[in-house]
Amino acid sequence: MNKTQNVTIKGTKDGLTLHLDDTCSFDELKKELDRKLSNSSRVQEEDKLLTVKVTVGNRYLDAKQQEELKDLIRRKRNLIVEDIETNVLTREEVQQLKSENEVVSMARVIRSGQVIEVEGDLLLIGDVNPGGTVKAGGNIFIMGTLKGIAHAGCNGNAEAVIAASVMKPSQLRISEFISRSPDQNEDDGRIMECAYVSGDSQIIVDRLQVLMNKRPNLARFEGGR
């Protein structure tokens, strides 16, 4: 019986890639992978670790199966799985991705004691009053006065920025960095400003216009004339 191979190994200029067929069962795949990695062993004595990419096509692997594959490959040879690529995403993963990448817009006043949290970017049309908090996994844009706390990149993204029409925050937080306004803050707040984390891990507040140089990847729009 001449069966097509379920596992093919290819060398590309980026390194080794294991193509795993998506039409057989997972157990079959494991068996074949096991066999292939064992018998094709040109015995390599040197302990150099090779990284490989694994592509699984239209097969969905849950976290446990991915772990099994990685484990199998790691045990057999001095190979380390760098990445497992699949064409399939679960609904939750897609929703997660979507919410991480969308801009949530909101028209209201965030009052004392209220906390607004979004996964992606936040566009707030209204004020954040003292005692109120806005948190976003991405950037925060406020068309109004920021008088409370804004926490951008709250899942650890230090590239995130905070921009506000009127900036007089009680605290600014970006990723794990925190800055607060001086205790004697008598000015009326400055207009059209942004905050970002500089190279030396300080939160810098500056004119809005510097953002296009500091964070060029804020621009998602391509084309136009």
């Binding site: 009052r111 004392s112 004691g113 209220q114 003292p130 005692g131 109120g132």
Partner: peptide, 12 residues
């Protein structure tokens, strides 16, 4: 005014 802000948020 702070507390009023809080209570307005709750009433809303």
């Amino acid at each position: 005014v702070r507390d009023a802000d809080r209570i307005i948020g709750l009433i809303e």
